[in-house]
Design a binder for these strands. Structure first.
Lengths: 202, 202
DNA sequence: GGTGCGTGTTACCGGTCAGTAACAACGGCA
DNA sequence: TGCCGTTGTTACTGACCGGTAACACGCACC
């Protein structure tokens, strides 16, 4: 029934012990990420999750609903990663800032499909799509956390540095998709360190 | 027949004196930009261009073909803008660099849908889509031009600055889509000037 | 007056899409 | 045993998708 855009049959590829809802959610996240939200159908998701379309619609009222739930789990994981910075380097905002840079670089290197939230914002052009508010809130939250980190690290122009680093990471993740791994995104770590040093020196 | 995603009927919205091919091309560019490539159908494009699907397919062998041609015109216009920098400030690479920054800021402010090339890279997930090579080549060309500009302006770490500014612009244009006009992208001009100053001071 | 090319029109193809209805089978639980 | 909530199965709807065939029309050019 469901077909992966490449042409191959779908393969059940998630923990079969979990409840259908969780299987659908994690499968949908993976497929949306790989093939785009508009590039994958609910039938394919259900089949890859080892269940069927009816069960999917019993748990998620619509495809847009499912998309929003997926993005919510993405946001939740992002928040957990932020928490880890302060756990790994308690009371050391400078170390946390550099960990943020390293984590960003690792993100870019590990997967060529960029940020799920930003990609969704590109793909879902409807200005009143329910996912838009979610994306906006999360992105704003991440930037504010970064600004607080910069301020705590003693940067005088903390807001400006946070904006700069935010744009650089966002740009690196989309540049990785358009010009590939060899492009500017490959130097994200070095560039970020240089920019931070410049702001600290000022 | 064709329907705009909003639900309204399509309206013919291009110069009716031009030949069908040109009308289709400019209409497709506009609709792809507003609703996404996967979000608009060839029927809608043809109707909005004041013609029909058959004529569209006589000029463009497939939808992917049409997409590629659209992106080529985007690339051509981008190249012309680059040329304008050296025309407006001949022999003054520093002025050209600042004009690049100002132009980028104006781009962000004028339209919330970001870069057509980057958006296409996000939307067209097929790794061997004919548009991917085009996008990659153009993006690489723009970065190289910027690097030459930075070097000519006397920046020692010209390559690194070019990468940084490239990512910042790319990020600003996608951030504008996800967090809105009030987000970090609003400060792109100030941030870029600060980064350039920091690289010049080093 | 003819000839051909570009264009318009209509109808169609097979496929995919999101979403729903009706019913059968399962599981635990009392 | 009977009950009930969850799940699976099948089939369906109506819409849209990219792409094509066949044919009629108009217009320039010779």
């Amino acid at each position: 029934m469901g077909k992966i855009p490449g042409g191959a049959e779908v393969a059940v590829s998630c923990c079969p012990t979990a409840r259908p809802r969780e299987r659908i959610l994690s499968t949908a996240r993976d497929l949306f990420r790989r093939y785009g939200i508009r590039g994958i159908g609910v039938d394919t998701i259900a089949e890859a999750a080892g269940t069927n379309k009816m069960t999917l619609y019993r748990h998620f009222g619509s495809k847009d609903d499912l998309v929003c739930e997926c993005l919510k789990t993405v946001a939740r994981e992002g928040s957990e990663i932020w928490d880890r910075f302060s756990v790994d380097h308690p009371g050391d905002p400078t170390a946390q800032l550099h960990q943020w840079v390293r984590y960003g670089a690792a993100c870019i290197a590990s997967d060529g499909r960029g940020c799920d939230l930003a990609n969704a914002a590109v793909e879902l052009t409807e200005p009143d799509h329910p996912a838009r508010r979610l994306i906006e809130d999360v992105k704003r939250d991440y930037r504010d956390r970064l600004a607080r980190l910069c301020a705590a690290a003693g940067v005088v122009q903390a807001e400006l540095l946070a904006d700069t680093l935010s744009l650089m990471l966002e740009g690196a993740r989309v540049s990785r998709q358009s010009v590939g791994v060899e492009g500017p995104s490959a130097r994200f770590l070095r560039m970020s360190e240089a920019v931070i040093a410049a702001f600290k020196g000022a």
